[in-house]
Design a protein around this nucleic acid. Structure first.
Length: 701
DNA sequence: GTGCGAGTATGA
DNA sequence: CATACTCGCACC
């Protein structure tokens, strides 16, 4: 093979070009010319690179952020690196005159590149960290979200940690027998588990019943998959959920069968877990969104818990979503998929609508044995007549329900975050108080202090309501600590615990106690809560977000699901407007029905998942130019551009940004993504200013 | 991103 | 006519 290597491949491509130049330059400095020329020579004495005997061409994906360079480049594999430059290996190559990192995508016998090939400089590590499956997956993700593979690879492959790599990973122990029976109450539950166990690839949207331990059920699904000799990948929103799942798996089959993959673990631990999976040391992988790319050897199942949680939206380019990453993986490998939650997202519902997945739910009769939701509070109509009606945060019915619950166990009280709570409003008409200088929200940072603007800091000692002329201000919600104090007074002698923000309790005991928690920070109670009370529900609904309702229902459902079953529990009391759609959805406890309603709304509003939507953010001038240049599919709608309001914390007067919204019917989604990727490639090749592209952004703030 | 070649402006 | 500079593009 070396003999048949194309002529001109033999290394040292630099000196023919460099030497004459050096010579010419030196003519103006005659004294130095010869000495310099001699010094310039030695590098050229490097022996010519001997190409590898077999497959001397490496197709390398270089790590450069430019969209138009997002394709493989061919390099010559020197004989010395022939064994290490395996597909998937990290390498260093010379690219455009500088050393860059890259991955070997494949080896080949010859190159289609007409020019000379540069040799690989170094194999950083022969560990095949970019498998064919993940290479294909990153390609699809880049295409779907109109980003570059190098961006996706940064998410998919953790930074190397050499010390960790030298340590061998253990071999997986045999799976002990385990009782996998918790799915039996669900329609289609037993069938799902049997299929996984038998090596099948079922696809399900699963609505977990209140009172069930979702972590144990998902652990069972993973164990069933592992028993069939395949890998299982379970993603959860945050670290607390990882711990819960970790404990569930350990309880079911002991340690050693699963690996935890999270970004928060630190570089060494993260890379160790990543390698352990790649080397086949464990079949079950659990983790947060960083785990979605785990290199499972033979993937049998992907699952995502509570896919509506916005922690699944990747904050870095290309802003992909864990649920969609996992679904792409399932489509690509043909493996099983479970999209799970107490509430159901519109996206999950869409999988049922198209017939791609089957519904796995508890029968209505079973739901009634788990939870009974009642509403207590003023309707919006009542509030219009008498704004003060809201001042009773804890109506009589709610008070009674909490008291009744406390007779038999812990009571969970969910109250919206303190972050929302500090914005002041008129105490007569509820108009939010805005700063006279910059229209930012007014806040009180310590009790008794003068209200001031959260954005510009201006004090507002004598505020007057622009709507009703009132002068009184109040915090519309008191925050969890004040709630705890209030409840402590209302139920003297009862222990009150709080869980929120940076002080999150993972679990509480079965003894009677009031547990005040912010949404998402609710501790799990041993045996479940006797009663769950949801306070100030109007506040979650009042967010301006498009998904405010869906998000509120999700958060309430997650809290309500922690209640123990009906005979001695099941009571969930909602303080809020009984007429609100979200509140009604909770009362009916019909995740499918509510999700169907969401879909109908999205269809008529042309929003995802019924449409594919993209936002482009740049200066107005750039957007104008982009709009003209875009080759959009025929049915595309173009909205805007509209100027983007400055972020609260941004210094005012920064470059003014605007946003363009594009959307197409779902079927034309790939065409839209392709048009946007084309746009980015063209712009990066022409060095035009950056345009931020987000496909199906989680919110349209 | 960077380096290079083509093309153009500029000065002797 | 030679040199200096900018622009555009390719990068294996």
């Amino acid at each position: 093979m070396p003999a048949s290597a194309p002529a001109g491949w033999i290394g040292a491509v630099t000196e023919p070009g460099v030497a004459p130049q050096v010579g010419q330059e030196q003519l103006s400095l005659p004294g130095l010319a010869r000495a310099e020329a001699r010094r310039a020579k030695p590098p050229s004495k490097k022996p010519p690179v001997q190409p590898a005997a077999v497959d001397p061409v490496a197709q390398v994906l270089v790590d450069v952020p430019l969209a138009h360079l997002d394709r493989p480049f061919d390099y010559l594999v020197p004989d010395t690196l022939a064994d290490d430059a395996v597909p998937g290996a990290r390498v260093k190559v010379r690219f455009a005159g500088q050393d860059v990192d890259g991955f070997v995508l494949a080896r080949a016998a010859e190159s289609a590149h007409p020019g000379r090939l540069m040799p690989l400089r170094r194999v950083v590590s022969p560990e095949p960290v970019l498998t064919a499956e993940i290479a294909a997956l990153t390609g699809e993700i880049a295409a779907r979200w109109a980003g570059t593979r190098s961006d996706v690879l940064r998410l998919a492959v953790p930074p190397r940690h050499a010390t960790t790599e030298r340590k061998p990973s253990p071999n997986p122990p045999g799976l002990p027998p385990a009782d996998l029976t918790r799915w039996a109450p669900y329609d289609g539950g037993a069938a799902l588990l049997d299929a996984l166990d038998a090596g099948g690839s079922p696809r399900a949207v699963w609505s977990c019943l209140p009172g069930d331990d979702w972590a144990l059920l998902l652990a069972e699904a993973a164990v069933a998959t592992a028993r069939s000799g395949r890998g299982a990948l379970l993603c959860v929103p945050d670290h607390r959920d990882v711990t819960r799942l970790d404990e569930a798996l350990t309880a079911l089959v002991g340690g050693g069968h699963h690996v935890v993959l999270t970004a928060e673990a630190g570089p060494a631990k993260r890379y160790a877990a990543f390698l352990a999976v790649e080397r086949g040391a464990a079949r079950i992988v659990i983790g947060t969104r960083a785990a979605a790319f785990a290199l499972l050897r033979e993937i049998g199942l992907v699952a995502v818990w509570d896919d509506g949680d916005d922690l699944y939206a990747e904050p870095r380019a290309p802003y992909c979503h864990t649920r969609d990453v996992l679904l792409l993986r399932s489509r690509q490998t043909g493996c099983a998929a479970i999209v799970a939650g107490h509430a159901r997202s519109a996206e999950a519902q869409y999988l049922l609508r198209t017939g791609w997945a089957r519904e796995v739910v508890g029968p209505r009769d079973t739901v009634r044995t788990r939870v009974a939701v009642s509403v207590s509070g003023a309707t919006d109509f009542d509030l219009q007549r008498d704004p003060m009606a809201r001042s009773s945060r804890l109506p009589q019915e709610a008070h009674q329900a909490i008291a009744a619950g406390l007779r038999s166990g812990p009571v969970l009280v969910q109250t919206p975050r303190a972050g929302y709570a500090t914005r002041l409003a008129c105490d007569r008409c509820r108009t939010p108080a805005a700063c006279a200088v910059c229209v930012g929200p007014l806040r009180i940072t310590s009790s008794g202090a003068v209200p001031s603007c959260a954005w510009c800091g201006t004090d507002a000692p004598g505020w007057t309501c622009p709507e009703c002329g009132g002068h009184g201000l109040r915090a519309p919600v008191l925050g969890d600590r004040r709630t705890a104090e209030e409840l402590g007074r209302a139920f003297p002698g009862t222990p009150v615990r709080t869980s929120s923000g940076d002080r999150v309790l993972p679990r509480v005991g079965a003894a009677p106690a009031i547990v005040v928690a912010t949404p998402g920070a609710e501790p799990v109670a041993d045996g479940g809560y006797a009663t769950v009370a949801l306070l100030d529900t109007w506040l979650l609904l009042a967010r301006s977000d498009l998904r405010a309702d869906e998000e509120a229902v999700r958060r309430w459902s997650n809290a309500a699901a922690l209640v123990r079953p009906v005979p001695d529990g099941g009571r969930v009391v909602v303080v809020g407007d009984p007429g609100a759609a979200g509140v009604q959805a909770l009362v009916r406890w019909d995740p499918g029905g509510y999700a169907e309603r969401l879909i109908a709304e999205r269809l008529s509003a042309h929003l995802p998942p019924a449409s594919r939507l993209a936002t482009l953010t740049a200066s107005p001038a750039v957007l104008e130019e982009v709009e003209a240049a875009l080759g959009l599919p025929p049915a595309a709608e173009v909205l805007g551009p509209v100027p983007l309001p400055h972020e609260g914390t941004d210094r005012a007067g920064d470059d003014d940004l605007a946003r363009l919204v594009l959307r197409v019917p779902r079927a034309e989604g790939p065409a839209l993504s392709a048009a946007l990727a084309d746009l980015q490639r063209g712009r990066s090749a022409r060095k035009q200013p950056h345009v931020r592209v987000e496909v199906d952004p989680i919110r349209l703030g």
